[in-house]
């Protein structure tokens, strides 16, 4: 118990930058959910259990269109595919995390990944509880933001038409950040143009699965040409990518 408290104290300062971001984006999520008829209770559940920012935002569109869990599953896999990379980078670090390991992996969102990569606990602080504290604090901030947004949305009534654009803006911003940060634009362009081509070919209701297959095939077929210099994400660099 004392060890836990000590670790929490040491971890808190490292989570402050995420606190602001998660509260703000979490609130936008809660408000968006509320505007679609899913109140703060639902935002709480989704943020607690799914715990994946961008997937949750896209998830709002699963909740407002025809019921299709398989589609929701594949979309989430695709959106969160980047976590495969985080996992691979964390194999060594999480090797000896004991009984906390499952939770640490469960809560390994982008922000948590970047903070844990960039920090080491001070002398005398238990590294397992330190990493646990970072992961749990981030989850707490995310849940708090979403619930606050849901509450705010249900108290204040305003014209929410166009609020959905927060999702578009989020991905445009991530796209722009990645474009600026990485010299190799081929994967991004493949994603953009093969999806656009599939949208035109298959129409807005059934273009996503063909687009995913197309992207993976193109990436694998042209591996040699694409490879080039793709730097691995720098620690802490992927600020919001992170959701």
């Amino acid at each position: 118990m004392r060890e836990m408290k000590k670790a929490l104290k040491a971890a808190f300062p490292h989570t402050i930058p995420i606190l602001t971001g998660f509260l703000f984006i979490g609130m936008a999520y809660g408000m968006l959910m509320d505007s679609k008829g899913y109140g703060p209770g639902w935002s709480f559940l989704f943020s607690l259990i799914v715990l994946a920012g961008s997937a949750q935002f896209v998830g709002v569109t699963f909740l407002t269109s025809a019921f299709n869990p398989l589609y929701a599953f594949f979309m989430t896999l695709m959106i969160n595919a980047r976590h495969l990379f985080y996992g691979i980078s964390m194999l060594e670090r999480y090797k000896d995390m004991g009984k906390l390991k499952p939770y640490l992996i469960y809560g390994l969102c982008d922000e948590t990944f970047s903070v844990i990569c960039a920090t080491t606990p001070p002398e005398g602080v238990n590294v397992k509880w330190f990493r646990f504290s970072i992961t749990a604090l981030h989850q707490l901030y995310w849940i708090t933001g979403s619930v606050l947004g849901g509450l705010l949305g249900s108290m204040i009534t305003f014209n929410t038409k166009g609020l959905d654009f927060v999702l578009t803006a989020l991905f445009v911003v991530i796209f722009t950040s990645q474009w600026k940060a990485h010299p190799n634009h081929k994967p991004a362009l493949i994603g953009l143009f093969s999806t656009a081509a599939c949208l035109i070919l298959f129409g807005p209701d059934r273009f996503i699965i063909p687009a995913m297959i197309g992207i993976i095939l193109l990436l694998i077929l042209f591996k040699k040409q694409i490879r080039g210099p793709i730097p691995e994400p720098e620690q802490g660099e992927e600020e919001i990518q992170c959701l």
């Binding site: 695709m78 796209f175 991004a188 994603g191 953009l192 694409i226």
Partner: peptide, 24 residues
């Protein structure tokens, strides 16, 4: 292959998501 997809797919996926948001 997995490492390679882990490196490249995140970029392609964001491109996909931008288009997904604009499907309407």
């Amino acid at each position: 292959v997995i490492t390679y997809l882990g490196q490249t797919l995140p970029y392609a996926a964001i491109g996909l998501l931008v288009v997904y948001c604009l499907k309407g």
